[in-house]
Design a protein around this nucleic acid. Structure first.
Lengths: 186, 186
DNA sequence: TGTATTGTACCGATCGTTCTGTCACCCGAG
DNA sequence: CTCGGGTGACAGAACGATCGGTACAATACA
């Protein structure tokens, strides 16, 4: 039971939480209604284009919050290792230490994936580029940095998936902690 | 349009194909009916417990075919590198060079995940153990082998996810090809 | 004939969506 | 200050479509 008054950001956060756990198809309007405390018609008042509109707002929220808490720190000043550790901290929080699924991975399932694919791809692209810039700053060539950055995202997403499938969230933390050394080795 | 007569294996394969693309919730009975060429009543004749029964059959098919084409080769005689390359060949085929999603990852989404979690976890467990045995045979300690084997599955699943999200299937092949060296390095 | 398989029609439930209406609140006119 | 008309935020009820699932008769094949 939400406390009657919810800001748009809070509503979007709750929608994201449901999508994360149930997937796009599983996130029914009635589930979203229950999670946000808003009637179905109220949801349509705030998101006139329906479910796609709500999930679009989730992606927008994801874009801005990833930019602020992950991409920007990666591009900031500081030692490469520190910048990677800053990313790790943000990811650990966002994924609840490996217990929560990745929204981007969830949105790759089903017909919805076609609609959201461009925006999802863009986020991954930005993420890879931000990680690659760190690795370049550590002295690697642009090509090696690009390849290692892709490998970083591969590991993060894979660890998230396996951690949840095995019921062992620690897999995620272990993978994260190993990343800086592996990405920066000569 | 299926050619009228389908073996149970072929039916299961088509169900798997739909689940893979649409997810559990998105794989409606009408979609499964269309994909298999069987009416709903025929589907219920062959799978009396409905959708869960069909997906259960998919998992069973997965267990046996992964055992035959991936786990067994990993445990067979031969050099560690050869055994890993044998796994890679099977995976490349099964995932269509990175174009098809992983059924196990798909089944981790939504309420369905709770029902199938034990079997999915078991498959991952067996997979990790089989890879670990290869790495042990290359001279690594049991602990290091276990950790590296987990990392292998992490990378395979992550690469599959990212390859599809980026629309660049080649990410999967590149990750696979890099695996033997990374897992067997001293 | 008997058994295995399938088509048709249907069930109640739930899907995403829309319509209608109500309530609280703001703001300018009197 | 009061009042009335807009305005945004919400709920209830209902829409047609589709969901997963069932009953049963008809067909196909042995």
């Amino acid at each position: 039971m939400p406390p009657a008054l919810l800001s748009r950001e809070e509503v979007v956060a709750r929608v994201m939480s449901v999508v994360r756990r149930q997937g796009y198809d599983g996130a029914s309007l009635s589930a979203l209604s229950k999670a946000t405390g808003l009637g179905k018609s109220s949801l349509y008042h705030h998101f006139p284009d329906g479910k796609d509109d709500m999930v679009g707002a989730v992606i927008t929220h994801l874009e801005t919050s990833l930019e602020a808490s992950v991409f920007a720190p990666l591009r900031a000043a500081g030692s490469p290792a520190d910048r990677l550790r800053a990313m790790n901290g943000a990811l650990d929080r966002f994924y609840a230490d490996g217990r929560e699924a990745c929204v981007l991975a969830i949105l790759g399932v089903g017909d919805a994936s076609r609609r959201f694919h461009p925006r999802v791809k863009r986020i991954f692209r930005d993420w890879i580029d931000a990680v690659a810039s760190v690795i370049r700053d550590s002295g690697q060539s642009a090509e090696a940095a690009q390849a290692r950055a892709e490998d970083a995202i591969v590991r993060i997403e894979g660890a998230l998936m396996l951690a949840r499938s095995m019921g062992e969230p620690s897999i995620f933390g272990r993978t994260l902690r190993a990343l800086p050394e592996e990405l920066l080795r000569p």
